[in-house]
């Protein structure tokens, strides 16, 4: 009885409902860019439990239908729930069996609606999402944040990638990147992230989507070199840090 009593100053009893107040297992940055034939996307496979690198083989990029590819950072379980929504969406879309299909633009907008709707319920899906795709020769690349902010761009990155990868992409991206150049550029970004983002792990996948469909690479590692003098005593010259 007591627990049903509304607390003064609140619209409802906070004990009566459960919502995500903070994430548990999270994935870090996703980086993606448009290239000549479609979209390239990269994400590592780490799953952090708080600051513990708890899981090492989390797939954070999944194909959605025929024309779209979704990458996610943030709460892994929320991403998995989202994949269930999208599976259903694509299934019902296919069941029309009329030759029409949802393209990347449609899926992106659907995601925006879902994310914004959940945040309005004060129960957000704790993710930053990257959606890329190609349909009828049109390349599409967009992002949705946890609270439903969305935009399109030629290259996007979530989380730390926003700070560490986007500046590189702004300098080096151009419309006619070949597949090899695109992969190289993504690896450059991922390497920087690996060095500077403590939740990044050195096991990543790169995926591409073109008119032909989605391919997601096997997990692999980047070559690293930790012998730089700046790495040996990083706090030297940074007074006040430990």
């Amino acid at each position: 009885m007591e627990s049903n009593q509304a607390k003064p100053g609140l619209l409802c009893n906070p004990d009566a409902s459960q919502r995500t107040l903070y994430p548990y297992v999270t994935g870090t940055s996703v980086v993606a860019l448009k290239y000549k034939d479609g979209i390239l996307m990269a994400a590592d496979m780490g799953g952090s439990y708080g600051s513990t690198l708890r899981y090492k083989s989390v797939e954070r990029m999944k194909p959605i239908g025929k024309h779209s590819l979704l990458g996610a950072s943030g709460e892994i379980s929320d991403f998995q729930e989202l994949l269930r929504y999208l599976d259903e969406l694509i299934l019902y879309d296919n069941m029309w069996d009329d030759g029409n299909s949802l393209g990347p633009k449609e899926v992106h907008n659907y995601l925006t609606r879902v994310m914004y709707n959940r945040r309005n319920k004060f129960n957000p899906l704790w993710n930053s999402l990257v959606l890329g795709g190609v349909k009828k020769g049109q390349k599409y690349l967009g992002m949705v944040s946890m609270i439903g902010v969305n935009f399109e761009d030629n290259h996007v990155a979530t989380g730390f990638g926003n700070h560490l990868a986007r500046p590189i992409l702004r300098d080096e991206w151009h419309e006619n990147l070949t597949f090899e150049e695109g992969v190289k550029l993504l690896e450059k970004c991922m390497r920087v992230l690996l060095y500077r983002d403590r939740s990044a792990v050195n096991k990543l996948q790169i995926s591409k989507i073109t008119e032909e469909g989605v391919t997601i690479s096997q997990p692999y590692s980047l070559k690293t070199f930790w012998g730089f003098s700046a790495f040996e005593n990083p706090t030297l010259g940074a007074e006040g840090s430990w």
């Binding site: 029309w96 449609e106 609606r113």
Partner: peptide, 15 residues
């Protein structure tokens, strides 16, 4: 249009 930001295919509306 609200959900997908694209026009509803005519055939689907008819069904």
């Amino acid at each position: 249009n609200y959900t997908y930001e694209s026009p509803l295919p005519v055939g689907r509306l008819v069904v």
